Simulated assay, not measured.
Amino acid sequence: MICYFGILDSVNDVWGVRVPDLPGCHGGGASPDEAIADATSATREWVEARIAKHLPMPNPSTVADLLRSGEIDSSGGESAVIVRHR
């Protein structure tokens, strides 16, 4: 099973998770758990659409890759979460 990392953040009590390796894939909710669950659902749909089109899956980044690239703003309160698609 391939696992991707999502980036969890919050603004004004609204939580979001974006999945950098899957362009356009994100989720949101009123709590971190809701945002992660929504991102998990979005990831599942993203993967299913990709498979249906017979396209290869992107290689997942490591947390170190995401930190090195500046994708995670830990000083701004962002953190990495695992987003499973199956």
Rank of each mutant, 00 (worst) to 15 (best):
C3F: 00
G6A: 09
G6W: 07
I7Y: 04
I7G: 05
L8H: 06
D9K: 03
D9A: 14
S10L: 04
S10V: 14
S10I: 01
V11G: 03
V11N: 14
N12W: 03
D13H: 13
V14M: 12
V14P: 04
V14D: 06
W15M: 02
G16K: 10
V17C: 12
V17D: 07
V17S: 01
R18V: 10
V19S: 01
V19M: 07
P20Q: 00
P20V: 02
P20D: 05
D21G: 11
D21I: 11
D21W: 06
L22E: 05
L22Q: 05
P23L: 10
G24F: 07
C25V: 02
C25G: 04
H26V: 11
G27S: 13
G27Q: 10
G27L: 03
G28R: 03
G29K: 07
G29P: 04
G29C: 08
A30D: 15
A30V: 14
A30N: 12
A30Q: 15
S31D: 07
S31G: 12
S31H: 07
S31A: 13
D33E: 15
D33M: 10
E34T: 03
E34G: 03
E34L: 10
E34V: 08
E34C: 01
A35D: 00
I36M: 12
I36P: 03
I36V: 15
D38I: 13
D38S: 14
D38N: 13
S41F: 08
A42Q: 01
A42I: 04
A42M: 09
A42T: 05
T43W: 01
R44E: 00
R44T: 04
R44K: 13
V47C: 03
E48P: 00
E48G: 03
A49L: 15
A49F: 07
R50N: 10
R50L: 06
I51Y: 08
I51H: 09
I51T: 15
I51L: 15
A52V: 02
K53P: 01
K53G: 07
H54R: 14
L55A: 14
L55H: 14
L55P: 14
P56H: 13
P56M: 14
P56E: 15
M57L: 11
M57Q: 02
M57K: 05
M57T: 04
M57N: 09
M57Y: 05
P58M: 12
P58G: 13
N59G: 13
P60K: 15
T62D: 12
T62M: 00
T62N: 01
V63C: 07
V63N: 09
A64E: 15
A64N: 13
D65C: 10
D65P: 15
D65K: 13
L66S: 02
L66Y: 10
L67T: 05
R68L: 11
R68N: 13
R68F: 09
S69G: 01
S69W: 12
S69P: 00
S69A: 15
E71N: 13
E71V: 14
E71C: 01
I72A: 12
I72W: 03
D73T: 11
D73Y: 08
D73L: 11
G77W: 06
G77R: 04
E78C: 09
E78D: 07
S79N: 11
S79M: 14
A80W: 10
V81T: 06
V81S: 08
V81K: 02
I82Y: 09
V83N: 01
V83Q: 01
R84A: 02
R84K: 05
R86D: 09
R86V: 10
R86C: 08
